[in-house]
């Protein structure tokens, strides 16, 4: 018995696939933006905050990094629903992904902040920069610049991991596969198509981060160091 591949049946569902791709990208975009904000804030707290705040951030980071995203999403999304709050599923998914990626971002940015030389801070003080100015221009920006490649690959992983949110009913790219499978019974072909789409997405997202990096860090662009 030989199996006849039928990719046409799957590709006929391209509107669903396109819609799923857009949802995946949107989820990734939102959780990237919020994740960077949370990560940068928590990293600042962890390197220079009061002891109690450091402990809280430390617990948050350790707990998230040592439990699976799936359980975190179940906990948050089903938990919020059980309290009677009705959130749109995309909002819930963004919250779950943001909480998750925020912890990873914290660790990466913290490493960047710790790599800032003390002399830089002393120089900023001597130049009379305010505390906020020092944070923004002397600490956060160079720190982000230094860890940018690590951040970018973490966010590509986030894009791939967002497929897990299909299990709580988010109709992103992977979630669409269920519908196509039950219509066509072409399980294997569906997964081949999904695999190729995700590979393309990974390349696109990675390229997007490279371009963004060139725009964000002109100093590095001038020095010609690669991102």
């Amino acid at each position: 018995m030989t199996y006849e591949f039928d990719f046409g049946a799957v590709l006929g569902y391209w509107p669903l696939l396109l819609q799923g791709t857009l949802t995946t990208l949107r989820l990734t975009l939102f959780s990237t933006v919020f994740g960077i904000l949370i990560g940068a804030f928590c990293a600042l707290v962890k390197t220079g905050g009061p002891q109690w705040a450091r402990t809280i951030v430390g617990l948050y980071v350790e707990f998230i990094r040592n439990t699976p995203l799936l359980i975190q999403s179940y906990f948050l999304i089903f938990g919020i629903a059980s309290m009677g709050l009705r959130l749109p599923i995309l909002v819930g998914a963004t919250i779950a992904l943001t909480v998750n990626i925020g912890a990873y971002t914290t660790e990466i940015v913290r490493a960047g902040i710790e790599s800032i030389h003390r002399g830089q801070l002393e120089a900023a003080e001597c130049l009379g920069l305010s505390k906020v100015q020092t944070y923004l221009h002397i600490i956060i920006r160079p720190a982000l610049e230094r860890v940018y490649p690590a951040l970018a690959s973490q966010y590509v992983l986030l894009m791939l991991a967002s497929s897990i949110l299909s299990s709580v009913g988010v109709e992103e790219l992977f979630g669409m596969s269920n519908r196509i499978q039950s219509d066509t019974f072409r399980n294997f072909e569906v997964f081949v198509v999904l695999g190729i789409l995700y590979l393309i997405l990974a390349v696109v997202v990675r390229a997007g981060f490279s371009l963004l990096g060139l725009a964000l860090f002109p100093r590095r662009r001038k020095l010609g160091t690669s991102l």
Partner: peptide
């Protein structure tokens, strides 16, 4: 590159349905 560029879930699907299809 290929394995790091696709979600584990997709890989699981391929490994689950693939062997049956190839006999």
């Amino acid at each position: 590159e290929i394995l790091q560029g696709m979600p584990l879930l997709v890989l699981m699907g391929l490994c689950f349905y693939g062997p049956g299809i190839f006999g």
